[in-house]
């Protein structure tokens, strides 16, 4: 049984469709990359899956023990004010907030898990540092550690490597890969086709033509695109 199935899903804003009828499914342990041009609607699709944006039509089904509020999320841009006083530790543990319902405080177990996630990201030396004083790459890892607290099953990452240098980008990809190997389903938006082809086992291309399938088939789809590229525009 699949963890996440989208059936003829039409995401959009204010009643206007951005994408028409997206179909795909994700099984436990999959690594799905979503690719497409700027403005094609990748982030919108992700927000719709997360329930941040109501779908115009279509269905999103969760299965295999996955609940909607148990999905970890790394936003494309976190609009955090420049002067927000918060330590790395405080931010990472806040990933548990949604699961706790009306329970006011985090449990000891949650605090320990948060600490473990910080270690997994290789940023334990920053635990007590203030978030706003970190570099972009370090901030990205903090947010990934937080996303990890929110889930045991599935991570949704919106351009996790945007703005990172090649070395840190490679590190980020290998961290994500190791999370995937430990059994967490990954859905990642990226503009880096070569990384998508390298790591993913499924690719969803968004644009005038939709594509969903294996990386191997995606290569053929791409060459088809460039052959009649003139027709697309």
């Amino acid at each position: 049984m699949s963890q996440l199935v989208c059936k003829s899903l039409c995401p959009g804003y204010d009643g206007k469709e951005i994408l028409h009828s997206v179909d795909f499914s994700v099984d436990a342990g999959d690594y799905l990359c979503i690719v497409g041009e700027n403005g094609s609607g990748k982030s919108t699709l992700m927000k719709t899956i997360l329930g941040l944006q109501p779908a115009i039509s279509g269905e999103i089904l969760y299965g295999d023990g996955l609940q909607r509020n148990k999905i970890g999320y790394l936003p494309q841009q976190t609009v955090v004010q420049k002067d927000f006083p918060a330590t790395v530790k405080e931010i990472v543990v806040s990933g548990f907030c949604g699961q706790n319902g009306f329970k006011p405080f985090y449990s000891i177990k949650q605090r320990i898990t948060a600490q473990n996630n910080i270690e997994k990201m290789g940023i334990s030396h920053l635990t007590k540092r203030c978030y706003r004083e970190l570099s972009g790459g370090q901030q990205q890892r903090v947010l990934l550690a937080r996303a990890l607290c929110a889930t045991e099953k599935m991570l949704l990452l919106d351009e996790p490597t945007a703005g990172l240098d090649p070395i840190v980008t490679a590190e980020m990809y290998s961290i994500i890969k190791s999370l995937n190997d430990s059994g967490i389903t990954v859905i990642m938006i990226t503009h880096d086709i070569s990384a998508a082809l390298k790591y993913a086992n499924k690719i969803l291309h968004i644009g005038q033509k939709l594509f969903f399938g294996s990386p191997k088939d995606y290569r053929e789809f791409q060459s088809g695109l460039s052959l009649n590229g003139g027709c697309e525009k």
Partner: peptide
Amino acid sequence: FDESFAKATG
């Protein structure tokens, strides 16, 4: 800190 993350995670 991050309203949309909070909302997305329930």
